[in-house]
Design a protein around this nucleic acid. Structure first.
Lengths: 226, 226
DNA sequence: ACGTTAGCGGACGCCCCCGTCCGTTTGGCT
DNA sequence: AGCCAAACGGACGGGGGCGTCCGCTAACGT
């Protein structure tokens, strides 16, 4: 029963794994997350079974494929937080995140989809937390309007996702313009009228509730167990 | 002998047609345009063949289902144009259109999808035209920022589409807030920095190919000739 | 060099969707 | 009431994606 799983992959297996991740990244970026698994396998030059062996569920593949993108996002946020001018930092975050999303369709979907048990939720929570602090400082510094809430940022990122154009160049241009508009809207200005109430989107109480997707969280029972 | 095709539907056929449109509206609104045709038929209590008989293509069904919504949109624009204060009129248009889109997911998709030969393109063109005039007047009146372009409006509507929440109430709240933010961004303010260039999205030259003609003077070669 | 076995990929069954055909029902008219 | 055809709906064939199984290949250890 206690079979030692060899944690060292064979060389060809390692190669295939890399090819699969490359293919997944390329296809997800270009076409979104709805690309068929077989398409990814085909592009990687392997059979479907190989794909499923390495990544038993699509979630796994997505998580691994976008791990570095997610890291880039975190870096962007960290850089923004490190800026001595918090309002400039926040603006930079908005611009850069929007650009990243404009360049990678799949990542946008993965980043914003509230998939139950999503792999990036931890990172997402961290990011939101850091952004909350940055926003508070930006408000105190006077650049960010006082009635800004964190959900507004989520709103902007979700909205940015809705922007879809034909060419990649247009996509970036549109996203850039949109980010600039969002920043304009967020700028503090004493003459402004108050905004309508903000909805709760991502911060707190975002429970998955209905289990429309059984995420099969099988734990391999590492220890002896019964 | 001379078979007159009766353009009057039988009573049951008329009933079914109405049921189908009702079902389509309900499902499109709730779940978007991707609902299976059979689902609509099932909901209407008819067989799939009946659906296909009344609406040979999904486009036809969509067009008919959203005819009044589209009319409502046009009315909104007309009312906005009729406002003696063009800037207030434009703001009203943004708010109302965003609200309509928030309430009806399918309509948003239908409205914004650049389906080739889409049924609503004519209405859309008209709407855009009217909005262009309104925007010009709002600029002249000083409420709307001078570097606003019509594509910015398209951008906002596309972005609004990207906002998706769980409950309908949240959806409306989010859309309302977003519309308010967009309006803030569009407001004229002498202190503002210029925006990045606007991408071409919907206005003019939206042809997928053969758009940039190097030979500017295209002679139609009016047939007569030899 | 050889055996072992990790790893591979083609093939399979399942489900869902699409669009159409034909036997049957039923409304409308005399 | 009775006819007729307009209208109905169940059924069919086609296509595509999903996740899995099994016989075979070739990488690794000795």
């Amino acid at each position: 029963m206690s079979e030692r799983l060899p944690h060292t992959l064979r060389s060809d297996a390692l190669d295939n794994r890399a090819s699969l991740l490359d293919a997944a990244r390329a296809l997800f970026s270009a076409d979104g997350l709805d690309v068929p698994m077989r398409e990814i396998a085909r592009r990687a030059g392997v059979g479907p079974a190989t794909l499923y062996r390495h990544f038993p569920t699509k979630q796994t593949l997505i998580a691994e494929a976008f791990a570095d993108q997610l890291h880039a996002c975190r870096t962007i946020v960290d850089e923004g937080c490190a800026d001595p001018d918090p309002w400039r930092g926040l603006r930079g975050v908005i611009e850069k995140i929007c650009e990243v999303h404009a360049l990678d369709r799949g990542f946008t979907e993965a980043f914003l989809s509230t998939v139950p048990g999503g792999p990036d939720l931890a990172g997402r929570a961290y990011t939101l937390e850091a952004l909350a602090g940055l926003a508070r400082r930006a408000k105190d510094a006077g650049g960010l309007r006082p009635d800004f809430v964190l959900d507004d940022l989520v709103l902007v990122f979700m909205a940015n996702k809705g922007i879809r154009t034909r060419s990649a160049a247009t996509q970036v241009a549109a996203s850039r313009r949109f980010a600039a508009l969002a920043i304009e809207a967020f700028a503090a200005d004493p003459e402004r009228a108050p905004l309508p109430p903000a909805p709760r989107l991502a911060t707190a109480a975002n429970k998955p509730a209905a289990a429309n997707n059984s995420a099969a969280t099988n734990e391999p029972a590492a220890g002896g167990g019964s």
